[in-house]
Amino acid sequence: MSTVKENVKYAESHEWVMVEGEIATIGISDYAQHALGDIVYVDLPEEGDEVEAGETFGAVESVKAASDLISPVSGEVVEVNSELEDAPELINKDAFGTWMIKVKLSDSSELDALLDAAAYAKICEE
């Protein structure tokens, strides 16, 4: 049903992270968008906010469900995908192509605790 993208890291709470240099780009997985159904609203932080690994940084809402977004990494939010304000359905269309926030990493060792695609795929199967 849902796909898992290679070459990105995953949190157990279904966020994906792609790292380039010291910037981590974060979104939610295809599995997560599938589970939520039609996404109608995304609540995201503001640029300049600090996020912490394991803490909530926002929420996604469908018609009859809401799910917190948990940050897989710590750092400062340097960019927020403002397109999602008017077009939250982009996440349903392409979960891996639609990022939510970009974070300047404050501790890159946190990445080691995240799952690779194979391990994440296993969680989705369960």
Partner: peptide, 12 residues
């Protein structure tokens, strides 16, 4: 806008 409400969000 029911996702704001108690029956979905519980303590949030």
């Amino acid at each position: 806008l029911q996702a704001r409400e108690q029956h979905i969000r519980r303590q949030k």
